[in-house]
Amino acid sequence: MSLPDYLHTPHGRRIAYHQSAGTGPGVVFLGGFNSDMGGTKATYLQDWAERTGRAYLRFDYSGHGDSSEKFEDGCIGHWAEDAACAISELTEGPQILVGSSMGGWISLLMTQRITARVAGLVTIAAAPDFTEDSMWDSFTDTQRAEVMEQGVTLLPSEYGDPYPITRRMIEDGRNQLVLRSPLPLPFPVRFLQGTDDADVDMSVALRLLDHATGPDMRLTLVKGADHRFSDPEELGLITAAIEEILTKIAP
């Protein structure tokens, strides 16, 4: 595996990335919460992009993977800043955003903040507003007290060490919500969701589909797929969604 390149942001953070040159519109992968750009979906898409000659970018948010900062010092707002900076500085022209889990939320924020750069959107188990609707709403009184009084609570994870959920993350998340106000998506959009996802319930995908507005929006439910969405058939659905969008936006 080659070493990453680095982008220094105006916010003083160092963002690690891998980029493949190719034709546009390019594809940008936005990863999940406490994940990194070395995951199965991110590297699969790079292989696909290199085979097809498509421009491609994957990167680590600050506090993730090879980027600078500590995870517990970050929040949705910081990671959205990282994404906007990476897309704006490292890519040219319109891009198709592919957002996985938290990356789905970040990609929706990008449609509002760098609207002119977004030509299409694919989400995989998108988790918009999860700090409020999934975390805070499900926290016990003890966990809420730890967040507010001690500044952090540790949330168990089946993927490894517990996640430190900070007061900053919860309070900042309330400034990034996308399901409480109009969410226009004026380009081709494909939402992918597994029915056996234990981390993002299928109801979230249905709520997102119902809430967002746009001329070309589809939700594909994959029976039996879990949150990883990384077996060969599921990975094929991701590239099929990208390719379908490309046929719709090609000049």
Rank of each mutant, 00 (worst) to 15 (best):
T43I: 14
F71K: 00
F71G: 01
Q46M: 15
A55S: 08
G77I: 00
Q46I: 06
T43H: 10
G77V: 00
Y44E: 08
F59A: 02
T43V: 14
T52M: 09
Y61I: 04
I76S: 11
G63F: 08
D66E: 15
M37A: 07
L45N: 11
L57S: 00
G77K: 03
Y61Q: 06
F59V: 08
A49Y: 08
E72Q: 13
A49S: 12
D60N: 14
R54L: 01
D73Y: 10
F71T: 00
S62P: 09
H78L: 10
G38F: 11
R58I: 08
E50Q: 14
G63L: 00
E50S: 08
E69T: 13
G77S: 08
G53P: 01
G74M: 10
R58N: 04
G53S: 05
K70C: 07
Y61W: 12
G39H: 09
A42D: 10
R54T: 04
F59Q: 01
T43Q: 13
T43W: 12
Y56E: 01
H78W: 14
M37G: 06
E69F: 15
L45G: 07
G38R: 11
S67Y: 12
C75A: 15
G39Q: 08
G74I: 02
L57C: 02
R58S: 04
D66I: 02
R51I: 04
H78T: 08
D73K: 03
S62A: 13
R54W: 06
S68V: 02
D60H: 13
F59M: 03
G77C: 03
Q46E: 15
W48R: 07
R54Q: 05
C75H: 14
E69L: 12
G63R: 02
A42W: 11
K41R: 14
I76E: 05
R54P: 01
E72T: 01
A42G: 07
H78N: 09
G65Q: 04
R51A: 15
L57T: 00
S67F: 09
